[in-house]
């Protein structure tokens, strides 16, 4: 193990380490905690200049209540959900198939197709912006959640294929061979032999794509406008325009907008981290 376990170090070192941990974490999360404190303060604290003192009254319920009941925030959150969940399902489904094809079969175009997915996944969004916006307009899907979902599915398929293909390569190939010898059709091999083994990869990808899409901002502003279709990342700017200089409300709004992926992460941490390392670091 590297570095040497602190348990083997002398007592003063151990104590130093144990005090350093919470201190460094506190400093690391300082900007975020500031926002959390803001979100439970009353409006008066900001007019009287009490920014960093303790809140004069605790207004968490009132502030968050206004975010949920007096603004468009719930609609934006719902939009985000309606954009994110179909994208996750679509991209994971497509990439299970592409990953299977590229991971299991040998044919000449294999590596080229794989590299197409990988390279496409890395291109800057701006090179796609004008044509994709155009295409979405032509399909009559501009300013709809569907338009955004279709693009997200297509784009995320690149990353998901990379991930799935590499994962399938680690599966024991003998399983597939023996199924073939027994005359099982290729589709049934996919459905009944490989797919059940892919569950951990599917879990990891789903949680990861959920976070990516929930946090997307660029495509949200390029392809949608207004509370009818915009997700919460884009909605938060209109929210902030509505409550300009009401820092307690803007803070509460930001925390609400950030929360779903955070919750997902803490619930499914193991899968999330497996996904982030692209399966390459084990």
């Amino acid at each position: 193990m590297f570095p040497a376990p602190i348990r083997k170090a002398s007592v003063p070192w151990q104590l130093a380490y144990r005090t350093l941990l919470p201190v460094s974490l506190f400093l690391w999360l300082l900007p975020l905690m500031a926002v959390a404190v803001f979100s439970i303060k009353p409006a008066d604290d900001f007019t009287t200049g009490n920014y960093w003192g303790p809140p004069s009254t605790f207004e968490a319920a009132a502030n968050y209540g206004r975010v949920f009941f007096e603004s468009d925030m719930p609609r934006y959150l719902l939009n985000s959900l309606l954009i994110t969940v179909p994208t996750v399902i679509g991209a994971v489904a497509l990439s299970c198939m592409t990953g299977f094809a590229l991971g299991v079969y040998r044919f000449r175009a294999n590596l080229w197709l794989f590299f197409m997915f990988v390279a496409g996944n890395f291109v800057p969004f701006q090179i796609l912006m004008v044509p994709v916006r155009d295409l979405t307009l032509e399909l009559g899907l501009y300013n709809t959640k569907t338009g955004l979902v279709l693009f997200h599915i297509a784009f995320q398929t690149g990353f998901c294929t990379l991930f799935m293909r590499n994962f399938i390569r680690t599966l024991p190939f003998a399983l597939i061979e023996s199924a073939r010898v027994e005359g099982v059709s290729e589709f049934r091999i996919f459905r009944y032999v490989v797919l059940p083994l892919m569950k951990p990869a599917i879990a990891a990808l789903s949680i990861l794509i959920f976070t990516f899409i929930w946090n997307d901002y660029f495509w949200a502003v390029v392809l949608t406008q207004g509370a009818g279709s915009q997700p919460v990342t884009a909605g938060i700017t209109s929210f902030n325009a509505q409550y300009r200089a009401a820092y307690h409300l803007m803070s509460a709004g930001s925390i609400v907008a950030a929360l779903p992926p955070v919750a997902m992460f803490f619930l499914m941490q193991r899968h999330f981290i497996a996904g982030l390392t692209l399966g390459a670091v084990k």
Partner: peptide, 10 residues
């Protein structure tokens, strides 16, 4: 895990 939009605001 937090969106860049919120990081930006923070």
């Amino acid at each position: 895990v937090i969106s860049q939009v919120v990081v930006g605001l923070v």
